[in-house]
Amino acid sequence: MTCRSRLTSAAAGLLLGALAVVPAQAEEIVLKAVTAFPAPVEFAKSFKRFVDKTNEMGKGVVQINYMGGPEVIPPPQQAQAVRRGVVDMQYGPGTYYLGEMPEVDAWVGSTVSATEAREKGGFKIMQAVYKEGLGAYLLAHIDSGIDFHIYLTEEPKRTPDGGVDLTGLKLRSQPIYRAFFEALGATNVSVPVPEVYTALERGVVDGVGWPLVGIKDLSWDKFLKYRIDPGFFQTDLAIIMNEDKWNSLPQEARDILTKAAVEYEKESYDHYQKVIKETDKTVQAEGMQVIDITGEARTEYLDMAFSTAWKRLQESGSEYTEQLREAYYDR
Results as ranks from 00 to 15, higher is better:
residue 166 L to D: 15
residue 218 L to W: 00
residue 146 I to Q: 13
residue 214 G to N: 09
residue 121 G to V: 08
residue 251 Q to G: 11
residue 248 S to K: 04
residue 161 D to I: 03
residue 208 V to E: 04
residue 155 E to A: 13
residue 151 Y to M: 08
residue 178 R to K: 14
residue 118 R to E: 10
residue 168 G to E: 14
residue 239 I to Y: 07
residue 200 L to Q: 07
residue 250 P to C: 08
residue 213 V to L: 05
residue 175 P to T: 06
residue 164 V to Q: 05
residue 177 Y to L: 12
residue 249 L to P: 12
residue 181 F to S: 12
residue 222 K to P: 11
residue 224 L to V: 10
residue 228 I to Y: 11
residue 224 L to T: 13
residue 119 E to P: 09
residue 116 E to A: 08
residue 186 A to H: 03
residue 140 A to I: 03
residue 159 T to S: 11
residue 209 G to Q: 01
residue 135 G to C: 06
residue 181 F to H: 08
residue 234 Q to I: 05
residue 247 N to S: 14
residue 174 Q to E: 10
residue 163 G to H: 05
residue 148 F to C: 02
residue 166 L to I: 15
residue 222 K to R: 15
residue 224 L to H: 09
residue 122 G to W: 00
residue 153 T to H: 05
residue 252 E to P: 10
residue 117 A to S: 14
residue 246 W to M: 02
residue 190 S to P: 08
residue 234 Q to G: 02
residue 129 V to K: 04
residue 185 G to N: 12
residue 165 D to W: 09
residue 120 K to P: 12
residue 153 T to S: 10
residue 181 F to A: 13
residue 222 K to N: 15
residue 153 T to V: 13
residue 186 A to M: 02
residue 146 I to E: 15
residue 233 F to D: 04
residue 150 I to N: 03
residue 236 D to W: 00
residue 248 S to F: 00
residue 202 R to C: 07
residue 185 G to Y: 13
residue 217 D to E: 04
residue 201 E to D: 10
residue 233 F to P: 01
residue 135 G to N: 03
residue 170 K to D: 01
residue 203 G to S: 07
residue 164 V to F: 04
residue 116 E to I: 02
residue 231 G to L: 05
residue 188 N to G: 07
residue 225 K to P: 02
residue 138 L to M: 09
residue 173 S to H: 03
residue 193 V to W: 02
residue 189 V to Y: 02
residue 114 A to Q: 00
residue 191 V to S: 07
residue 151 Y to P: 15
residue 202 R to E: 15
residue 125 I to A: 00
residue 152 L to F: 04
residue 150 I to R: 00
residue 206 D to A: 06
residue 193 V to I: 12
residue 134 L to N: 02
residue 162 G to R: 07
residue 194 P to N: 06
residue 225 K to R: 14
residue 203 G to R: 06
residue 212 L to C: 04
residue 231 G to E: 05
residue 175 P to V: 12
residue 167 T to Y: 02
residue 243 E to G: 09
residue 178 R to I: 12
residue 112 V to H: 01
residue 129 V to Q: 04
residue 206 D to Q: 14
residue 229 D to P: 15
residue 192 P to C: 02
residue 185 G to Q: 08
residue 221 D to C: 03
residue 228 I to P: 14
residue 209 G to N: 02
residue 195 E to L: 12
residue 169 L to E: 01
residue 221 D to H: 10
residue 168 G to C: 04
residue 197 Y to F: 15
residue 197 Y to Q: 11
residue 237 L to Q: 14
residue 148 F to A: 09
residue 240 I to S: 13
residue 153 T to I: 11
residue 252 E to C: 08
residue 151 Y to E: 11
residue 199 A to I: 13
residue 174 Q to V: 07
residue 171 L to M: 11
